[in-house]
Design a protein around this nucleic acid. Structure first.
Lengths: 159, 159
DNA sequence: TAAATATAGTCAAAGAAGGTCAAAAGGTTA
DNA sequence: TAACCTTTTGACCTTCTTTGACTATATTTA
């Protein structure tokens, strides 16, 4: 498994908790997590800031002071207008390999792509697959992804 | 046969590790290898870039920062000399959209790809998805397809 | 209500990888 | 030997993680 760093472990822990919550919402306390993983509290903040972003489909709310908490909400994307809007916004004229991989991963999580499809498309937009200089490479990648998304949204695309 | 440059030794070492791995996937750390061979880390990068290429049937992934690693994946092409030859011939350095579509279709017929995967990959290598001038476009298409095929042949690729 | 307590947030520095690029060194070949 | 290709090195860059000092805000208590 991919829990090489503390941050990865904390990420996994949170995701497990989210999975076992019925409504995709959990609350936790920063200090408690820090104790559980023997780290400074800001480590938790780091994990939230890098892994539980809106781009990746999470909303994080919190409150300070006594009785404070951090609430993590998995944001569902309902297959239509929202999804298109999200894709339109995420997919600019240029996109890095990392951002593209993030988009594909999200699509898998939303049930739009299978794991196999993700791997194949990741291969197709991989740096090594696009022997181009840098502004151009990110541009072509964005172009490919747009086409893929359009295809995916065609009425006659198979389930 | 006694070339024995440092690069050759490192190459051999990595290949031995790959051989003794169960699934043709290993992970290593650049710095660790550099220490083992008493060389600068970029020497390892050089070996990877010259010996563990797509053409030779290897995929290389990596991650920076704490917990960083280099993952080397060997695609078992030798398993199937025919397939290898077929790919070498069909999939040259350049390939047209039509020929590429033919390959994908063939792969579906062989049970290597699903219909959905074919549609998505066709979208990805479509003329419109590759805003490039003509010699280049066919070259990038060939590159993408190679990457996709290699990915498909990874031992750890899901059924 | 003021002070104490309990949380969470921010930010920058330090640490831990890997990447890039070009020059120097070493080999091969015409 | 000159030209060319491959290997070796090192300086510098980018990305990601960990840590801690300091800040902000909410609740509880005196």
């Amino acid at each position: 498994m991919e829990s090489r760093t503390l941050a990865d472990q904390i990420e996994d822990y949170i995701k497990r908790k989210l999975n076992s919550s019925r409504d995709g919402v959990i609350e936790l306390q920063r200090q408690e997590l820090a104790l559980r993983f023997t780290c400074v509290p800001s480590q938790v903040t780091y994990v939230l800031g890098t892994r539980f972003t809106l781009e990746r489909g999470y909303l994080v709310e919190s409150r300070r002071g006594g009785g404070g908490y951090i609430r993590i909400i998995r944001v569902p994307l309902n297959k239509d207008a929202e999804l298109k809007e999200w894709l339109r916004q995420s997919l600019g004229d240029y996109i890095s390999q990392e951002a593209a991989a993030g988009l594909l991963r999200r699509m898998v999580e939303e049930g739009l792509l299978t794991r196999r499809e993700e791997l194949l498309l990741n291969a197709a937009i991989n740096r090594q697959a696009l022997p181009l200089e840098l502004p151009k490479r990110d541009q072509v990648r964005a172009s490919i992804l747009k086409m893929v998304v359009l295809t995916l949204m065609r009425r006659d695309f198979p389930d």
